[in-house]
Amino acid sequence: MDARLSTEQRELRDAAARLAGDLGPGSVRDLADADRIARLEKAVAATGWRALRSDGASGVEVALVAEEFARGLVDVPFLGPVLAGDLRPGDAGDAQPWTISVRSEAIDARIQRVLAVRDGQILTARTGAELPGADLTRVSAEVIGPLEVAGQLSGEHAGRWLALALAVTSADMLGAARGAQALACDYARIRAQYGKTIGSYQAVAHPLAEGLALIEGSVSVLRHAAWAVDALAPPEAVRAAQIAKVYCARAALTICETSVQVHGGIGNTWECLAHVYLRRVLASAELFPVGLEEIDCGLS
C-alpha cells in the first residue's frame, strides 16, 4: 500500500504548474488577451497532454494536469480533449483534437469536433452556437449533427470512462479551489485595516485555515479516485470517483466563497479573480454531477 506520487508524476505536475503559471491569466483583464491565449494554446498543444489518455497515461497523471491547469485558470481546452482521447485510443497521431458532449452539450467547445456517447455507441458531431454558462475560462456549445456512429463502447470501458470524467472534474475543482485559497491568503497578508493586516485577525484567519484542511482532505480522496480509474473494477472505480466528486465539490465551493468574502467589497467585483475560480468550480461540479443520494454506503 503506497499512496505516494512517483518521481515522474511529481515532475509532470510541476511542469503543468509551470506552464499554467507562465501563460494562464494573471488577472481578469488577461482573460481577453488574445495573444496570451494563442501562446497558451500553442504551448498546451506542444506538450501533447491532451492526448495523455490515448497515449496510455493513467488517471493519476490526467488528474494532476487537470488540477494544475485549473489552479492556473488555463483557458484553453483540456478536459474535453483528454476525455475524448480516452474514447479514441491510439488516435494520438490525429493532430486536430476532439472534445466531448455531455448531456447534449459540447464542453471545451473552442474545438469543432465532438464525440458523444449514447447507448453504448460513440457518435461524432460538430459544435454549434455557444451556450450561456458560468465559466469564464471555458465555453460550452450546442451539438449539431449529423450524428455518425464512430464506434462501440463496451460497458466496462463506459464505466471506466465515467470514473475518469468524475475524477478529472474533481481535480479541476480542487485546482480551482487551491487557486482561490492562494489568492485569498495573498490578499489577507497585505490588506490592512485598523493598522494590521486582516490575516492577523482570527475572524479572517480561521476560515482560511479551514480551507487548507479541506484542500488536504480533497487531495486524499481525489488521489485514490484517480488511481482507482485504472486499478479497480469499473463499479468500484466509479464509486471512489463519486465520493471524490461529492467531497471536492463541497470543499471547493466553501473555499471559493471564503475567498470572495476575505476580499471584501473588491471580492464581489468583476475585477477580482475570486469569482473566476468560483465560476470554474460551479461549472465542473455541474459536469457529471453527483448527488449524495447516488452514493452507495454499502458495507463491504
Binding site: R189, K196, T197, G199, Q202, A205, H206, A209
Partner: peptide, 16 residues
C-alpha cells in the same frame, strides 16, 4: 480554534 491559529500563523503565514 487553537489548531486554526497554528495553521494560520505557521503554515499560511498570515501574521498575528
Amino acid at each position: 480554534q487553537i489548531q486554526k491559529n497554528i495553521i494560520a500563523s505557521r503554515i499560511l503565514r498570515l501574521g498575528g
